[in-house]
Amino acid sequence: MDLGKLLQAMVERGVLLRRIMYVVLAGLVIADILVPSKYDRFPWESVGGFGAFYGFISCVLIIVISKALGYLLLYRSEDYYDE
């Protein structure tokens, strides 16, 4: 079995993989709404699909805040410490 060829074949069917992923994502949220939550320590734990919302928001927040910090404060050229 040529693992590299197999991966390449998967990459070439990227559109199909993406569609499968959409179904999985939708299925997850639906399952979370349908399955009654076992936990109620925090109010949001019983909200179906909150994990999906929080994951997406976290990702966007992390990228936006970090990049902003980078450009405003932290980024320097690669030879900054060599000068």
Binding site: L28, G49, Y54, F56
Partner: peptide, 17 residues
């Protein structure tokens, strides 16, 4: 089911982002 569903949603929707 609570942990698995939570974690999968959190991670896969991070992937969407």
């Amino acid at each position: 089911s609570g942990h698995v569903l939570w974690e999968l949603q959190l991670l896969l929707f991070t992937g969407v982002g």
